[in-house]
Structures are given as structure tokens and as C-alpha cells.
Amino acid sequence: MFKNLDPILHSQLRLSIVSILMSVDEANFNFIKDETQATSGNISIQIKKLQDAGYIKVKKSFRNNYPNTSLSITKKGIEAFENYVSILKNYINPK
């Protein structure tokens, strides 16, 4: 019996954002934009969804007089990601 994949993570852009945040301690909005090649509007919407789910932490500040949005993954986000990968592996190699 296959378990359902987490709908929050099972979308290309949201999964990319979470994958990036799994490999760094903290990343800012522009870095995510460069890496994913997605539009600012789309990224903002997906960030909001991930934040609402409690998977990422968003910190807004100013750096050199410019707004700076820093993102980092939460403990809940790490657990969800690990769970998602484990279910995926089950889908690919069912026992």
C-alpha cells in the first residue's frame, strides 16, 4: 500500500526551494530566484505556502538599505522532507 505524498512538497518549485534549503543553513530570496529561475511572484506564493505549513522560517530585514528576505528550513520541514523522500523511494522500489 503506497502512502500519499505530501501535497505541499509534491510540486516542482516548492520541492526545489526546500531542497536548496536542505543544503544550506540560510539562503536569501535572490539566491532562490537565481537557482530556480522562477518569477518573484511565483516564488513569493510558494514561500508563503511553505511558511504556512511550518516547513520554512522567513526572516525579513534590511541590508545596505535594501530589503532582505532570508529563508531557512525548520525542524518540521526537515522531517517532512525526509518523510517525503522515504515515501518516494517506496514508490520507485516497492518491497
Binding site: 518549485l13 516548492r14 526545489s16 530556480t36 522562477a38 518516494l88 520507485i92
Partner: peptide
């Protein structure tokens, strides 16, 4: 990048 779903 589009926000589409995809295979495992």
C-alpha cells in the same frame, strides 16, 4: 520553473 506536479 513551473509549479507543476510530477512523477516520483
Amino acid at each position: 520553473m513551473e509549479n507543476t506536479t510530477f512523477t516520483p
